[in-house]
Amino acid sequence: MVTTAIETVNLAKIFPGGVQALNSLDLNIRTGESVGYLGPNGAGKTTTIQIFLNLLRPSSGDVFIFSEQLKGQERKIMRRIGALIELPGFYDNLTPNQLLRHICRLYRMEQGVMNQSIKEILDLVQLTEVRDRSIGTFSTGMRRRLGIAQVLVHDPELVIFDEPTNGLDPKGIREIRDLIKTLNKDGKTVFMCSHNLPEVAEISNRVIFLKNGNVIEDRQMREFKSRLSSNIIELKFIRSLTEKEKKNLNSITNVLNVVYDHSIFIEYQGSLDTTHQILQDLLKYNFPLYYFTPRLMTLEELYLQLFGKEVI
């Protein structure tokens, strides 16, 4: 049965000092979804999940998790969530084993279940060998894997990650991405903040774009991917275009969108025939063209369009 995992109604957050980090946010995440929460620096991603996790209080609006109001039921709700926010501190004197035991006890896991669960999770994140070593001696990658272990040790229904692969090497990134995909396949709801587009494209089945505390796009990944298969042509002209020429450029058949940057990009959909047709039209209108390079549109370019230039 599909139910709501996270719902926000008119959620707003204004920090003391006046920064409006979130602006009347309405989200609705269903159970079983894997959501990528994308946005440039300062968009309000971390703020959003800190509100979900009771680290920040909303200035106004409501949060419902598993259809229950978060406010007043934090402890009950947190039992069903596992979260990793940026890179938290771990107690350097303790060992992973000691830390995880404390956490399991807070989740009221029974001794036998706890031992089994810790053993399995340490295996999964490959920390078994160092389970009795002080966390203070750990590298960033090991700490992040410990963070993942702490998220999963109590088998939560909803997992929330904030930039889970930050600071990892390529192998580490691969492992974490695969792990998160597996989690979603196993039925867990995933909510992941990121400003890494390829990551979201790979992991998530829904993507929500945030900018300045507002949702500016909310799409199913497959629907988005059709736009990803848009073609793009990069054009360069020997001089800048007149207003009339710009108008002509927009009116060429099949052209969906024109972006003016250091070059001019036109976005269109269609086959090689369409590409050929566009070239013919460009020549017909007598554009001062010297560079014409068609290719597939990348997610980065789509992002660039949505967010202007402040990318990644």
Partner: peptide, 17 residues
């Protein structure tokens, strides 16, 4: 000290007041 070492990010979201 817990804020400083960012351990609050670890312990506050756990199911405890």
């Amino acid at each position: 000290g817990e804020h400083h070492k960012k351990t609050t990010l670890l312990i506050y979201p756990l199911p405890q007041r």
